[in-house]
Simulated assay, not measured.
Amino acid sequence: MRRDDRDDPFDDLFREIERMMNDMMSGDVDFESSTGLESGPGFGADTHVDIHETDDEIRVIADIPGVDKEAIDLKCDGEVLTISAANERRQYDDKVSLPGTVDEHSADATYNNGVLEVVFDRADDSADIDLD
């Protein structure tokens, strides 16, 4: 029995994937309008934020491609790290909730090849108060 390729249920899907790949490779795709996403606050699909913690420190690593180091603004209140950055095509804004309280004055930040890394010392635990 010979298989009839015209009855392949995935044929249309594969053709659509091939068309989209060809459009993408030729640069004809507007990703924001084709995905239904609007440009605005947030890092978007090309940015990834990781948080690593130890007993002594909390480390935030964010991919922010295509941004100059001077265009990055960081703020921290001890519980939330706010990352803002901009380039000619995009505005990045994100609030990263930290998994514990940090000493925001201990922050050490580096930016290299599109990767932002911010390291905080954990805040000291609350002081014990003696009752008299």
Rank of each mutant, 00 (worst) to 15 (best):
T47D: 13
M21G: 01
L98F: 05
Q91D: 12
I17W: 04
S39A: 13
R90P: 03
H52D: 14
D68M: 14
N22Y: 01
S39D: 15
F31E: 13
R6W: 10
N113F: 11
E32Q: 06
R2K: 10
G78E: 11
D124H: 06
E79C: 10
C76Y: 07
S106E: 03
P99C: 10
S34G: 00
R6C: 05
D8G: 01
I129L: 10
T47F: 09
N22R: 07
V119W: 04
N22D: 11
R2N: 12
Y92G: 05
T54Y: 00
T54P: 00
L74Q: 05
D93E: 06
A123D: 02
S33T: 10
R89D: 15
D8Q: 02
V60D: 04
E32C: 00
D46E: 11
V49R: 01
L37H: 12
E70A: 15
H48V: 12
V29R: 01
A127D: 06
V96M: 09
M1G: 12
T54Q: 02
S106M: 04
F14A: 03
P9N: 04
L116K: 06
G36Q: 11
I83N: 02
F120L: 05
H48I: 14
D4H: 06
D130P: 10
L13F: 14
I64N: 05
F43N: 04
D55L: 07
H105Y: 10
E38F: 00
M1L: 12
E70N: 14
R6K: 12
G114N: 06
D103I: 05
E57Q: 13
S126C: 02
D77H: 09
H52M: 13
D103Q: 06
S97L: 11
E57G: 03
R122A: 08
P9H: 07
N112G: 00
A85S: 04
E18I: 02
A107H: 08
I72V: 15
A62D: 06
D7C: 03
V49S: 03
G40P: 00
D103K: 08
E53W: 04
I129F: 08
S106C: 03
V29A: 01
A71V: 06
V118G: 01
F31R: 12
T35I: 08
D125T: 11
D12W: 00
S97I: 11
G27S: 05
E117R: 14
P99Y: 13
P99I: 13
N87A: 06
S26C: 01
R19D: 07
D4N: 14
D63E: 15
D7F: 10
V96C: 07
G42M: 02
D30E: 08
P41G: 09
D124A: 14
L116W: 08
R89K: 15
K69A: 11
M21Y: 02
L13A: 10
F10E: 13
Y92F: 15
D68T: 12
S84G: 05
N113T: 08
N22V: 03
S106K: 01
F120D: 02
A85P: 01
V102N: 09
L74R: 04
M20S: 03
D94N: 05
T82N: 13
V80H: 13
D23Y: 00
D68P: 06
E16C: 02
T35E: 14
P41Y: 05
M20C: 02
